[in-house]
Simulated assay, not measured.
Amino acid sequence: MLVKPKNYLFEKMAFITKPIRRRPIGRGRLGLPLPQALAKFRWLLAPLLPLLWLFRFVIFAKNFCYDRGFFKSKRLPAFVISIGNLSVGGTGKTPATIFLAAALRDQGWRVAIVSKGYRREGTASVIVSDGRRILADAVTAGDEPLLMAQACDGVPVVVARDKTTAAMAADEKFAPDIILVDDGFQHRRLQRDIDVVMVDARMLLSNLWWFPAWPMREPATALRRAGFVILNTGGCSDCERMMKKCRRYTAAKIFSGALRGLGWRDLTAAQKILPLDFVKDQPVLLVSGIAHPERFRELAEKFGARVVDEITFADHHRYRENDLGAIEATRKGSGARYILTTSKDAGKLGLLPGATAAPFLVLETVFDIEPPFLTELVEAIRHKR
């Protein structure tokens, strides 16, 4: 079954919480990737053109005022590095932040991470982790901050509605040497020492409409503010062409990176990590609430899983008990032996009563970046400190 691009676009909108059911993989090809859907069917979004131009004007005016010094950025004692992107979601910011936090921690620096905690409950500042223990769950922290806290021992994680507020709280509470700002490229109210920008190798840097007509937050020319560019090459068939495109817009050094699977675990992480080929030839149901569910499917198939059905939710979906019932009913109806999900979804699914009894397997991953990147970044930090 070919999913209509219109529905595929709506799936990306956070306020849509109903799952989008897919037929078994063997019955047909699934939906178009977002950039291709936009390029082919952008006329469907023509009513949004007035909002698009208004958004462009606001972004231009904001950047102009910051560039000319009319708006001031808050300077903190800590060295501030933002990890952001140009588009809406799905470029690998969170796994790249985890990579950087662990790498810089291992270099001997005290590191803290700050984030907004998208779609969490409440707006107050929350310490997700003090570096020694987890102090919040996915509901109060947000799924991605919880994931970062779980993956980064010794690294405090703080969330607040405003990233500057979160950074000030982290600086006051933990006195870190380095603060990493998750999704901070557009948050110019906080002064950064280095901007690391993630670019999806599958996402064209031009000829795409801006938000709210989707998916660009800023034009490719904004890359001139970047200190480093990381090209997420996962599943890309023509990465060299994307490298050349990036070089048109920035003098920053460009490195490639990609998500790599480590193994499978249960929802509680109580059992040891199972090898990636544990799911080989096994009938599985895929469940995810991420920006690009097709990439999770590609990984599952790469590891040999036989995908018999799939349920996708909107990015950052907050799971409820009726979701779990529907998932289990689908698993039994499709004949799937296991339910495969992502580590981002696992923190929310694990809160549901009875979820740990279901045959969930969670994919553990790591984001690998070319080794010269860390060498260059450390040198830049030491030079600017």
Rank of each mutant, 00 (worst) to 15 (best):
M1H: 14
V3A: 09
K6I: 11
K12R: 13
A14I: 11
P19Q: 09
R23K: 12
G28M: 13
Q36W: 07
A39W: 01
W43D: 04
L51H: 06
F55P: 03
V58N: 01
F60P: 02
F64W: 12
R68S: 12
G69H: 06
S82E: 00
L86S: 03
G89R: 01
G90R: 00
G90D: 01
I98D: 00
F99S: 00
V111N: 02
A112Q: 02
T123D: 12
I127L: 12
G131E: 06
D137T: 03
A138M: 05
G142A: 07
P145H: 06
C152F: 04
D153K: 13
T164Y: 05
A170D: 06
V181A: 00
G184D: 01
G184P: 06
D193W: 07
D200F: 07
L208C: 07
F211Y: 14
P215F: 02
L223G: 07
R224D: 10
G227P: 09
V229G: 05
T233N: 03
S237I: 08
S237F: 05
K244D: 13
T250N: 06
K253H: 09
I254W: 02
A258D: 05
L259M: 08
L262D: 04
R265A: 14
R265D: 09
A269V: 05
Q271K: 12
P275G: 07
D277R: 13
Q282R: 15
P283I: 12
V287L: 14
A291Q: 02
R295E: 08
R297A: 15
G304V: 11
E310N: 11
F313T: 09
L324F: 08
L324V: 11
K332N: 10
S334D: 10
A336Y: 11
R337D: 13
I339N: 15
T341P: 12
L349I: 15
L351E: 15
E364P: 07
T365F: 02
P372W: 04
L377N: 04
V378E: 08
E379A: 15
R385C: 05
